[in-house]
Amino acid sequence: MAGRLAAEGNTWNKNTIITLLSRLVEKGMLRTDKFGRRNRYTALLSQEEYQAGQTESFVEKIYEGNVQGLLATLIKKEMLTPEDYAKLQEFWDRGENDE
């Protein structure tokens, strides 16, 4: 893994990666299985679950739980286009479970 990161231009060393993985195991985001002297890591959260958790944390920390403040910022900074708004409206109208 460290070799692959280095090839992509990342300068993390082995100990940094091990520390990061250990913290993710402690937080319940990864599971580790021993295979001889090596560990195999498996994600315990889907990408959707992870993104939802990070979004909730972000809104709570930055906007004190006020989603309207986040959306207002996205609109003011033109990060939410009219097309994005239309798609969100369709999503809202369909209902969360009809993806």
Score class of each variant (00 low, 15 high):
Arg4Cys: 01
Leu5Thr: 03
Gly9Ala: 08
Gly9Pro: 02
Asn10Met: 06
Asn10Phe: 08
Thr11Tyr: 10
Trp12Asp: 02
Lys14Trp: 06
Lys14His: 14
Asn15Lys: 12
Asn15Cys: 07
Thr19Cys: 09
Thr19Met: 06
Leu20Pro: 01
Leu20Arg: 14
Ser22Gly: 11
Leu24Lys: 08
Val25Phe: 05
Glu26Ala: 15
Lys27Met: 12
Lys27Thr: 06
Lys27Leu: 15
Lys27Ser: 10
Gly28Trp: 12
Gly28Pro: 02
Met29Asp: 01
Arg31Gly: 05
Arg31Pro: 00
Asp33Arg: 11
Asp33Leu: 03
Lys34Ile: 08
Phe35Asn: 13
Gly36Gln: 04
Arg37Leu: 02
Arg38Ser: 13
Arg38Cys: 01
Arg40Ile: 13
Arg40Pro: 00
Tyr41Arg: 02
Tyr41Phe: 13
Ala43Val: 12
Leu44Met: 09
Leu44Gly: 03
Leu45Cys: 05
Leu45Ser: 05
Ser46Gly: 10
Ser46Asp: 00
Ser46Met: 02
Gln47Glu: 11
Gln47Phe: 04
Gln47Met: 08
Gln47Tyr: 02
Glu48Asn: 10
Gln51Cys: 12
Gly53Asn: 09
Gly53Pro: 02
Gln54Leu: 13
Gln54Thr: 12
Thr55Phe: 04
Glu56Gly: 09
Ser57Trp: 08
Ser57Lys: 15
Ser57Arg: 10
Glu60Ala: 13
Glu60Met: 11
Ile62Thr: 15
Ile62Phe: 09
Tyr63Ile: 14
Glu64His: 06
Glu64Val: 09
Gly65Tyr: 06
Gly65Ile: 04
Asn66Trp: 03
Val67His: 00
Val67Gly: 03
Gln68Tyr: 01
Gln68Asn: 09
Gln68Val: 07
Gly69Ala: 15
Leu70Glu: 00
Leu70Val: 02
Leu71Ile: 15
Thr73Glu: 14
Leu74Arg: 02
Ile75Arg: 06
Ile75Glu: 03
Met79Phe: 00
Met79Pro: 00
Leu80Ile: 07
Thr81His: 05
Thr81Pro: 01
Pro82Glu: 08
Asp84Ile: 07
Ala86Trp: 02
Ala86Ser: 11
Lys87Val: 05
Lys87Ser: 08
Lys87Ile: 10
Lys87Trp: 05
Gln89Trp: 10
Glu90Asp: 14
Glu90Trp: 09
Phe91Val: 11
Phe91Ala: 12
Asp93Asn: 14
Arg94Cys: 07
Gly95Cys: 12
Asn97Thr: 11
Asn97Cys: 01
Asp98Tyr: 05
Asp98Ser: 09
Glu99Leu: 05
Glu99Arg: 06
Glu99Gln: 10
